Amino acid sequence: MKNSEFCNINNLTFSQTSVRYLNELEDTAKVGNYLASGFSAIEFVNIFADRKYHKVVKNITTNDWEEFSKALLGIHRMTKNAAERVVSEAINDTKGEENAFWTCMYRALR
C-alpha cells in the first residue's frame, strides 16, 4: 500500500484548519531532517577533517558510535513527538471525515 493511500478518505477536501496542520506537520518533519543531517555532517567533518590516512582511521575506530546513534534516535523521537502533538491538535480541531483522517494519521505515528 502506498503511503498516500494509508489514510486516504475518498473525496476529502481539507479545510483551512487542516491545511494549516498539514503545513505544520511538514515543517516539523523538515526541521527534524535538517537537524539529523546537520548533526551527522558535523560528526563526519570531525572524523575526516584531518586528511592523513592514519588519523582518519583512528578517528573512525575511536569514535563513540553508540552515542552517535543515541543522539540520532533522540532527534527521531523529538520529531515524532512534535508530529504527534500537531496531529493531536488537529484531531481536537476537526470533525467528520477530516477528524477520521487525523485519527488515522495519529495511529500511523504510533
Rank of each mutant, 00 (worst) to 15 (best):
R85H: 11
A29F: 03
I47E: 11
K70A: 07
N81P: 02
E84Y: 02
R51F: 07
D50S: 06
F39S: 05
C104L: 10
G38V: 00
L22S: 04
A100P: 00
E26N: 13
C104H: 07
T28S: 06
E67D: 15
I91T: 06
H54L: 14
R85S: 11
K80C: 09
W65K: 03
A29C: 02
S69N: 12
I47Y: 07
K80N: 11
M78G: 08
I60Q: 03
D93E: 15
T94Y: 05
M78T: 10
E67H: 04
I91W: 07
E43D: 06
S88H: 10
E97L: 08
A108D: 13
N92I: 03
S69M: 11
N33K: 13
D27S: 14
I91E: 12
A41E: 15
N92W: 00
L72W: 06
A49R: 03
E89Q: 13
S37R: 14
S69P: 01
L109T: 05
V87P: 04
E67S: 12
N23V: 00
I75K: 06
E43P: 01
Y106L: 13
N33W: 05
M105A: 09
N46P: 00
G96F: 02
I75C: 10
E97N: 14
G74R: 08
V57P: 00
F68Q: 15
F44N: 10
D50T: 03
I60K: 02
R51A: 09
V31P: 00
K80H: 10
N81L: 10
M105Y: 05
A36E: 15
D27F: 03
L35G: 01
A83G: 14
V57T: 11
T62P: 01
A49T: 01
H54K: 12
K70F: 01
H76K: 14
T61A: 04
L35W: 06
V45A: 05
T62D: 15
E43I: 11
R110E: 15
A49G: 00
A49M: 06
F68W: 10
V31E: 15
D64Y: 02
V31G: 02
N46V: 00
I91H: 07
L22P: 00
T94G: 13
Y34I: 04
L22N: 13
N92F: 06
V56R: 11
N23F: 03
N59M: 02
A36P: 07
F48D: 06
